[in-house]
Amino acid sequence: MNEQRKDVLDMLAEGKITAEEAEQLIAVLERDQTPPASSLDTRPKGKAKYLRVVVDAIEDDEPTRVNVRVPLQLLRAGVRLAALIPPQALAKATAEMNKSGVPFDLTQLKPEQLEELVEHLDEMIVEVDQSEARVRVFCE
């Protein structure tokens, strides 16, 4: 148990705060302890385990933050499932994408290529900086 959480529980035991206040304080502590999006320059070397998507934006004059962590193993499993999509479904999806102005032929995409793509994701970093939004996609 970390020191700050112990302090909160001590204060609750001593009757200095109510159970509801203690719960709120612990929730704040938990939020503060959420691992921050690792700095891209200082992230540890080695096999990445997670794909992270972090978005900081201002929407409707309120700060908005999206923090998603997906295990790379889950992406690999998804690629295997995607490999089972029947060719006729891929052809339909390709036709719809072409209609929408995305000239990309899904039928030409092989499962091995997708697996290779996932394997090399840990070398990928995407950063988009705009005045009201910042998006980072990276592996850790």
Binding site: P63, T64, P71, L74
Partner: peptide
């Protein structure tokens, strides 16, 4: 193969975390 792939997705899902905050 379909059930195998679906099972892999289930077993690979621990560790997933989605956090959205607005205001």
């Amino acid at each position: 193969r379909a059930f195998g792939a679906a099972w892999r997705i289930v077993t690979a899902s621990p560790g997933t975390r989605v956090d959205v905050e607005q205001g």
